[in-house]
């Protein structure tokens, strides 16, 4: 019996030494590609097997050629002197690939046009030649742009102003990883500013629902657009305000008395409204319910967001 096993072992070893027909390694039908491309290649590819695309039990998952095209010229190139460089795959996604943007995008939308991407072609990103692979690393086991902590690095590749703003002392918790750009922006959608909801206010209400009202005493700009007063990406002013009181308030208000005061700091303790429009919470020292008030006090004061 031991002799038989030894013979089997030797036979097996002999078989190992032969060059068997290439087999699929991570994707259905990938053998013709992975016979050359692996992790040691300049374009490492195998990690896609750890992704949703590499879940071969799901019959919807692609082969290499589903995205990169049949690429016959690339595969049949024999090399050797005078043969010239190997042609690239039909569809390339690298930063310097020659494949037209529409063609690259179409390779993904063939399967992914539904769900949140139905309006992709109308989106600001599509209109500025951003394609799926501009942001997504399809072969990476964990696509950074789909990770809340890492996502902003991808966005900041183009959005330099926002990269600076989120590092200002007052910001949404984006650097801390508790929010990401896509918390507010639907980067595939067709809404203005590519927001997740249909307007700025509706987007802000998803977390700041207390500002929705309707209030007994309304402050019209609040209902219209939060970004009239707030810079959501980051500022140096408390509450993400674009400008400080009284300057911010005086972009709309030019009334008499204390409302027209200049920006100035008092020398000492005072309750004069003409001297306290800048210091501390500025105008909001008294107009404390600036987003709207629900007071029924029978006083004009209640209509001025002071109750």
């Amino acid at each position: 019996m031991r002799v038989l096993l030894l013979v089997l072992g030797l036979l097996s070893a002999t078989a190992w030494g032969q060059d068997p027909a290439p087999q699929d390694r991570v994707l259905n039908g990938d053998a013709k590609c992975t016979r050359c491309h692996d992790e040691n290649d300049s374009y490492p590819v195998l990690a896609i097997g750890a992704t949703k695309h590499g879940t071969r039990a799901d019959p919807r998952t692609p082969s290499c050629t589903s995205c990169h095209g049949a690429s016959e010229a690339h595969m049949s190139h024999k090399g050797g002197s005078g043969a010239g460089p190997r042609p690239k795959p039909e569809i390339g996604f690298g930063k310097h690939a020659k494949t037209p943007i529409d063609t690259r995008t179409k390779a993904c939308l063939t399967c992914h046009q539904g769900s949140s991407r139905v309006e992709w072609q109308m989106s600001a990103h599509a209109r500025t030649d951003v394609t799926c692979s501009s942001c997504h690393l399809v072969h990476a086991p964990r696509d950074p742009v789909r990770d809340r902590v890492a996502q902003s690095d991808t966005c900041f590749t183009c959005h330099k102003e926002q990269r600076v703003q989120v590092n200002r002392p007052v910001h949404h918790p984006i650097p801390e990883g508790k929010m990401s750009c896509s918390s507010c922006h639907d980067v595939h959608g067709g809404n203005p500013k590519q927001l997740t909801r249909d307007s700025t206010t509706e987007t802000c209400y998803t977390c700041h629902m207390e500002k929705r009202g309707p209030f007994v005493h309304s402050h019209p700009p609040v209902q219209e657009d939060c970004s009239i007063c707030h810079q959501p990406h980051g500022t140096t002013i408390a509450s993400l305000l674009k400008s400080r009181a009284p300057f911010l308030c005086q972009e709309c208000h030019s009334d008499t008395s204390h409302r027209s005061q200049a920006g100035a700091l008092p020398s000492g303790r005072t309750t004069s409204s003409g001297l306290t429009g800048t210091v501390a919470r500025g105008c909001m020292n008294c107009h404390t319910n600036i987003h709207g008030s629900n007071s029924k006090e029978n006083s004009a004061t209640s209509g001025r967001f002071r109750r």
């Binding site: 920006g263 100035a264 700091l265 005072t270 004069s272 001297l275």
Partner: peptide
């Protein structure tokens, strides 16, 4: 952040307000 503000008087009074002995200063 800079907050320069020129104040050109067109009526009698001081450039910046004061009340109850408390004065104010530019920012």
């Amino acid at each position: 952040n800079k907050y320069p503000e020129d104040i050109s008087l067109i009526g009698p009074g001081t450039v910046l307000p004061a009340s109850g002995g408390v004065t104010t200063s530019p920012l």
